[in-house]
Protein backbone atom coordinates (compact mmCIF):
# COMPACT_ATOMS: atom_id res chain seq x y z
CA UNK A 1 0.00 0.00 0.00
CA UNK A 2 1.49 3.32 -0.91
CA UNK A 3 2.00 6.01 1.68
CA UNK A 4 -0.41 8.41 0.05
CA UNK A 5 -3.30 5.97 0.35
CA UNK A 6 -2.37 5.19 3.94
CA UNK A 7 -2.26 8.86 4.72
CA UNK A 8 -5.71 9.28 3.21
CA UNK A 9 -7.07 6.36 5.21
CA UNK A 10 -5.77 7.86 8.44
CA UNK A 11 -7.30 11.19 7.49
CA UNK A 12 -10.53 9.40 6.67
CA UNK A 13 -10.73 7.83 10.10
CA UNK A 14 -9.97 11.10 11.83
CA UNK A 15 -12.42 13.17 9.79
CA UNK A 16 -14.91 10.32 10.01
CA UNK A 17 -14.75 10.44 13.78
CA UNK A 18 -15.56 14.13 13.61
CA UNK A 19 -18.52 13.40 11.34
CA UNK A 20 -19.54 10.81 13.89
CA UNK A 21 -19.38 13.34 16.71
CA UNK A 22 -21.47 15.91 14.84
CA UNK A 23 -23.77 13.08 13.75
CA UNK A 24 -24.33 12.11 17.38
CA UNK A 25 -25.20 15.71 18.15
CA UNK A 26 -27.69 15.68 15.29
CA UNK A 27 -29.21 12.36 16.34
CA UNK A 28 -29.50 13.60 19.91
CA UNK A 29 -31.86 16.39 18.85
CA UNK A 30 -33.75 14.15 16.46
CA UNK A 31 -34.23 11.40 19.03
CA UNK A 32 -35.23 13.63 21.90
CA UNK A 33 -37.50 16.07 20.12
CA UNK A 34 -38.14 14.65 16.61
CA UNK A 35 -36.70 17.77 15.03
CA UNK A 36 -34.50 17.38 11.94
CA UNK A 37 -32.06 20.17 12.58
CA UNK A 38 -30.81 21.65 9.33
CA UNK A 39 -28.90 24.27 11.29
CA UNK A 40 -26.50 21.67 12.72
CA UNK A 41 -23.69 22.89 10.45
CA UNK A 42 -24.16 26.42 11.72
CA UNK A 43 -23.48 25.22 15.25
CA UNK A 44 -20.00 24.26 14.04
CA UNK A 45 -19.61 27.63 12.41
CA UNK A 46 -20.80 29.61 15.42
CA UNK A 47 -18.61 27.60 17.76
CA UNK A 48 -15.53 28.12 15.59
CA UNK A 49 -16.12 31.85 15.18
CA UNK A 50 -16.78 32.40 18.89
CA UNK A 51 -13.62 30.53 19.80
CA UNK A 52 -11.60 32.37 17.15
CA UNK A 53 -12.96 35.72 18.32
CA UNK A 54 -12.18 35.16 22.01
CA UNK A 55 -8.64 34.02 21.10
CA UNK A 56 -7.80 36.86 18.73
CA UNK A 57 -9.64 39.60 20.62
CA UNK A 58 -8.48 38.90 24.16
CA UNK A 59 -5.31 36.96 23.50
CA UNK A 60 -6.12 34.33 26.14
CA UNK A 61 -4.83 30.74 26.22
CA UNK A 62 -6.66 28.32 23.96
CA UNK A 63 -8.13 26.34 26.84
CA UNK A 64 -9.97 29.34 28.24
CA UNK A 65 -11.25 30.42 24.86
CA UNK A 66 -12.48 26.88 24.31
CA UNK A 67 -14.27 26.77 27.66
CA UNK A 68 -15.92 30.14 27.01
CA UNK A 69 -17.09 28.77 23.67
CA UNK A 70 -18.65 25.74 25.34
CA UNK A 71 -20.52 27.87 27.85
CA UNK A 72 -21.68 30.19 25.09
CA UNK A 73 -22.93 27.26 22.99
CA UNK A 74 -24.76 25.76 25.96
CA UNK A 75 -26.66 28.99 26.49
CA UNK A 76 -27.29 29.41 22.78
CA UNK A 77 -28.65 25.88 22.47
CA UNK A 78 -31.09 26.38 25.33
CA UNK A 79 -32.08 29.77 23.97
CA UNK A 80 -32.82 28.47 20.48
CA UNK A 81 -34.90 25.66 21.88
CA UNK A 82 -36.88 27.85 24.26
CA UNK A 83 -37.38 30.87 22.02
CA UNK A 84 -37.65 29.34 18.56
CA UNK A 85 -38.66 25.69 18.86
CA UNK A 86 -40.74 25.45 21.99
CA UNK A 87 -43.61 27.49 20.51
CA UNK A 88 -43.58 25.08 17.55
CA UNK A 89 -44.35 21.98 19.61
CA UNK A 90 -47.37 20.32 18.09
CA UNK A 91 -46.97 22.02 14.71
CA UNK A 92 -46.51 19.92 11.55
CA UNK A 93 -43.01 18.50 11.13
CA UNK A 94 -42.53 20.35 7.84
CA UNK A 95 -43.00 23.72 9.59
CA UNK A 96 -40.37 22.81 12.13
CA UNK A 97 -37.95 21.76 9.37
CA UNK A 98 -38.55 25.03 7.53
CA UNK A 99 -37.76 26.93 10.71
CA UNK A 100 -34.45 25.12 11.16
CA UNK A 101 -33.56 25.87 7.54
CA UNK A 102 -34.44 29.48 8.31
CA UNK A 103 -32.19 29.38 11.36
CA UNK A 104 -29.38 28.05 9.20
CA UNK A 105 -29.70 30.90 6.69
CA UNK A 106 -30.03 33.46 9.46
CA UNK A 107 -26.88 32.36 11.26
CA UNK A 108 -24.87 32.03 8.02
CA UNK A 109 -25.69 35.59 7.05
CA UNK A 110 -25.24 36.97 10.53
CA UNK A 111 -21.77 35.46 10.80
CA UNK A 112 -20.78 36.58 7.30
CA UNK A 113 -21.86 40.06 8.25
CA UNK A 114 -20.01 40.03 11.55
CA UNK A 115 -16.79 38.31 10.55
CA UNK A 116 -16.62 38.70 6.79
CA UNK A 117 -16.58 36.06 4.09
CA UNK A 118 -12.86 35.29 4.09
CA UNK A 119 -11.34 32.35 5.90
CA UNK A 120 -9.51 33.40 9.04
CA UNK A 121 -6.71 31.23 10.41
CA UNK A 122 -6.69 30.33 14.07
CA UNK A 123 -3.78 31.63 16.12
CA UNK A 124 -1.13 28.98 16.61
CA UNK A 125 -2.23 26.51 19.29
CA UNK A 126 0.29 23.69 19.23
CA UNK A 127 4.04 24.05 19.37
CA UNK A 128 4.50 21.58 16.57
CA UNK A 129 1.86 21.80 13.87
CA UNK A 130 2.27 18.17 12.90
CA UNK A 131 3.79 15.03 14.35
CA UNK A 132 5.04 11.80 12.95
CA UNK A 133 3.16 8.61 13.83
CA UNK A 134 4.42 5.35 12.29
CA UNK A 135 6.07 7.31 9.54
CA UNK A 136 2.97 9.32 8.74
CA UNK A 137 2.69 13.06 9.03
CA UNK A 138 -0.44 13.79 11.06
CA UNK A 139 -1.46 17.24 12.15
CA UNK A 140 -1.30 17.63 15.91
CA UNK A 141 -4.79 19.02 16.02
CA UNK A 142 -6.05 15.91 14.28
CA UNK A 143 -4.42 13.72 16.89
CA UNK A 144 -6.05 15.90 19.51
CA UNK A 145 -9.36 15.62 17.73
CA UNK A 146 -9.07 11.83 17.80
CA UNK A 147 -8.80 11.92 21.56
CA UNK A 148 -11.56 14.49 21.88
CA UNK A 149 -13.86 12.47 19.61
CA UNK A 150 -13.30 9.26 21.51
CA UNK A 151 -13.79 11.09 24.79
CA UNK A 152 -17.07 12.59 23.59
CA UNK A 153 -18.28 9.20 22.37
CA UNK A 154 -17.42 7.58 25.69
CA UNK A 155 -19.16 10.42 27.50
CA UNK A 156 -22.27 9.90 25.36
CA UNK A 157 -22.26 6.18 26.07
CA UNK A 158 -22.00 6.80 29.80
CA UNK A 159 -24.58 9.58 29.69
CA UNK A 160 -27.28 7.48 28.06
CA UNK A 161 -26.55 4.32 29.99
CA UNK A 162 -26.01 5.59 33.48
CA UNK A 163 -27.03 9.19 34.05
CA UNK A 164 -30.48 10.19 35.20
CA UNK A 165 -30.85 12.86 32.54
CA UNK A 166 -29.71 10.45 29.82
CA UNK A 167 -32.26 7.84 30.85
CA UNK A 168 -34.93 10.53 30.95
CA UNK A 169 -33.96 11.54 27.41
CA UNK A 170 -34.24 7.99 26.11
CA UNK A 171 -37.60 7.59 27.82
CA UNK A 172 -38.82 10.85 26.30
CA UNK A 173 -37.62 9.74 22.88
CA UNK A 174 -39.56 6.50 23.20
CA UNK A 175 -42.84 7.71 24.70
CA UNK A 176 -43.32 11.32 25.72
CA UNK A 177 -46.50 10.86 27.69
CA UNK A 178 -45.21 7.85 29.58
CA UNK A 179 -42.08 9.86 30.40
CA UNK A 180 -44.23 12.63 31.78
CA UNK A 181 -46.17 10.15 33.89
CA UNK A 182 -42.85 9.30 35.55
CA UNK A 183 -42.33 12.92 36.48
CA UNK A 184 -39.88 13.72 33.68
CA UNK A 185 -40.09 17.29 32.39
CA UNK A 186 -40.16 17.09 28.61
CA UNK A 187 -39.30 20.79 28.31
CA UNK A 188 -36.20 20.24 30.37
CA UNK A 189 -35.21 17.24 28.23
CA UNK A 190 -35.63 19.17 24.96
CA UNK A 191 -33.61 22.13 26.19
CA UNK A 192 -30.83 19.84 27.45
CA UNK A 193 -30.71 18.00 24.14
CA UNK A 194 -30.23 21.24 22.21
CA UNK A 195 -27.66 22.53 24.64
CA UNK A 196 -25.54 19.37 24.49
CA UNK A 197 -25.91 19.15 20.73
CA UNK A 198 -24.75 22.74 20.26
CA UNK A 199 -21.77 22.23 22.54
CA UNK A 200 -20.61 19.02 20.93
CA UNK A 201 -20.97 20.47 17.43
CA UNK A 202 -18.93 23.47 18.47
CA UNK A 203 -16.09 21.19 19.55
CA UNK A 204 -16.00 19.72 16.05
CA UNK A 205 -16.25 23.21 14.59
CA UNK A 206 -13.23 24.40 16.52
CA UNK A 207 -11.16 21.38 15.49
CA UNK A 208 -11.96 21.80 11.80
CA UNK A 209 -11.49 25.55 12.14
CA UNK A 210 -8.00 25.07 13.53
CA UNK A 211 -7.11 22.87 10.56
CA UNK A 212 -8.72 24.72 7.68
CA UNK A 213 -9.33 28.19 9.06
CA UNK A 214 -12.73 29.52 9.99
CA UNK A 215 -15.09 30.31 7.14
CA UNK A 216 -18.62 29.59 6.07
CA UNK A 217 -17.29 26.41 4.42
CA UNK A 218 -17.55 24.93 7.91
CA UNK A 219 -21.30 24.67 7.65
CA UNK A 220 -20.77 22.46 4.59
CA UNK A 221 -19.11 20.07 7.00
CA UNK A 222 -22.43 19.99 8.80
CA UNK A 223 -24.28 19.13 5.60
CA UNK A 224 -22.02 16.14 5.04
CA UNK A 225 -23.20 14.81 8.36
CA UNK A 226 -26.56 14.03 6.74
CA UNK A 227 -25.29 11.12 4.68
CA UNK A 228 -23.53 9.88 7.81
CA UNK A 229 -26.59 9.87 10.04
CA UNK A 230 -28.91 8.57 7.33
CA UNK A 231 -26.44 5.78 6.63
CA UNK A 232 -26.40 4.87 10.30
CA UNK A 233 -30.12 5.32 10.84
CA UNK A 234 -31.52 8.66 11.93
CA UNK A 235 -32.27 7.60 15.47
CA UNK A 236 -29.19 5.59 16.34
CA UNK A 237 -26.25 7.12 18.19
CA UNK A 238 -23.99 4.18 17.35
CA UNK A 239 -25.21 4.41 13.78
CA UNK A 240 -24.09 8.03 13.65
CA UNK A 241 -20.56 7.06 14.66
CA UNK A 242 -20.32 4.15 12.22
CA UNK A 243 -21.93 6.22 9.47
CA UNK A 244 -19.52 9.06 10.15
CA UNK A 245 -16.51 6.74 9.89
CA UNK A 246 -17.77 5.22 6.64
CA UNK A 247 -18.44 8.60 5.06
CA UNK A 248 -15.06 9.92 6.22
CA UNK A 249 -13.24 6.94 4.71
CA UNK A 250 -15.32 7.02 1.55
CA UNK A 251 -14.54 10.66 1.01
CA UNK A 252 -10.83 10.16 1.35
CA UNK A 253 -10.84 7.09 -0.88
CA UNK A 254 -12.66 9.21 -3.43
CA UNK A 255 -9.88 11.75 -3.10
CA UNK A 256 -7.42 8.98 -3.97
CA UNK A 257 -9.49 8.12 -7.02
CA UNK A 258 -9.59 11.79 -7.96
CA UNK A 259 -5.84 12.13 -7.91
CA UNK A 260 -4.93 8.73 -9.27
CA UNK A 261 -7.42 8.41 -12.06
CA UNK A 262 -7.91 12.09 -12.73
CA UNK A 263 -11.66 11.75 -12.41
CA UNK A 264 -12.20 15.17 -11.04
CA UNK A 265 -14.22 16.02 -8.01
CA UNK A 266 -15.42 12.67 -6.64
CA UNK A 267 -14.47 13.67 -3.12
CA UNK A 268 -17.23 16.20 -2.87
CA UNK A 269 -20.06 14.07 -4.10
CA UNK A 270 -19.13 10.53 -3.09
CA UNK A 271 -20.94 10.81 0.28
CA UNK A 272 -24.13 11.81 -1.47
CA UNK A 273 -23.94 8.94 -3.95
CA UNK A 274 -23.63 6.71 -0.90
CA UNK A 275 -26.63 8.44 0.62
CA UNK A 276 -28.83 7.69 -2.40
CA UNK A 277 -27.70 4.08 -2.55
CA UNK A 278 -28.38 3.52 1.14
CA UNK A 279 -31.84 5.02 0.98
CA UNK A 280 -32.64 2.67 -1.89
CA UNK A 281 -31.41 -0.46 -0.12
CA UNK A 282 -31.96 0.19 3.58
CA UNK A 283 -34.45 2.99 4.17
CA UNK A 284 -34.06 2.69 7.94
CA UNK A 285 -30.29 2.95 7.76
CA UNK A 286 -27.85 0.41 9.14
CA UNK A 287 -28.87 0.77 12.77
CA UNK A 288 -32.22 2.52 12.53
CA UNK A 289 -34.81 1.05 14.84
CA UNK A 290 -38.04 -0.52 13.96
CA UNK A 291 -40.48 -1.08 16.81
CA UNK A 292 -40.23 -4.20 18.89
CA UNK A 293 -43.09 -6.50 18.04
CA UNK A 294 -43.79 -9.43 20.25
CA UNK A 295 -45.18 -12.40 18.41
Amino acid sequence: MDAFLLQLLVNGVIVGMLYGVVGMAFVLIYKASQVVNFAQGEFLLIGAWVCWWTLTEFDIPFVFGFLITLVFMFVLGVLIQVVVLRPLIGEPIISVIMVTIGLSIFFQSLLNWMFGVFAQPFPRIFETPSMEIFGLQVQTVYVMSMFVSVAIMAAFAWFFKASKTGLAMRATAFDQQAAQSLGISVRHVFATAWAISAMVSAVAGVVVGVVNGVSSALSFFGIKVFPAVILGGLDSIIGAVVGGLIIGLLENLAAYVDVDLQWGNMQRIAPFYALILILMIKPYGLFGTRDIERV
Binding site: A171, D175, Q177, A178, S181, L182, G183, I184, D291, I292
Partner: peptide
Amino acid sequence: MEGRRIIQDMTVHENLRLGAHT
Protein backbone atom coordinates in the same frame (compact mmCIF):
# COMPACT_ATOMS: atom_id res chain seq x y z
CA MET B 1 -51.08 4.23 32.73
CA GLU B 2 -53.35 2.01 30.71
CA GLY B 3 -51.44 -0.37 28.47
CA ARG B 4 -48.42 -0.40 30.85
CA ARG B 5 -46.39 2.06 28.78
CA ILE B 6 -43.03 0.72 29.80
CA ILE B 7 -40.02 1.92 27.81
CA GLN B 8 -39.61 -1.04 25.49
CA ASP B 9 -36.11 -0.35 24.24
CA MET B 10 -34.68 -0.21 27.74
CA THR B 11 -33.85 -3.03 30.11
CA VAL B 12 -35.92 -3.90 33.17
CA HIS B 13 -33.28 -2.36 35.39
CA GLU B 14 -33.24 0.90 33.43
CA ASN B 15 -37.03 1.08 33.51
CA LEU B 16 -36.96 0.73 37.27
CA ARG B 17 -34.35 3.44 37.58
CA LEU B 18 -36.53 5.69 35.47
CA GLY B 19 -39.32 5.22 37.99
CA ALA B 20 -37.09 6.92 40.54
CA HIS B 21 -36.57 9.94 38.31
CA THR B 22 -38.04 12.36 40.82
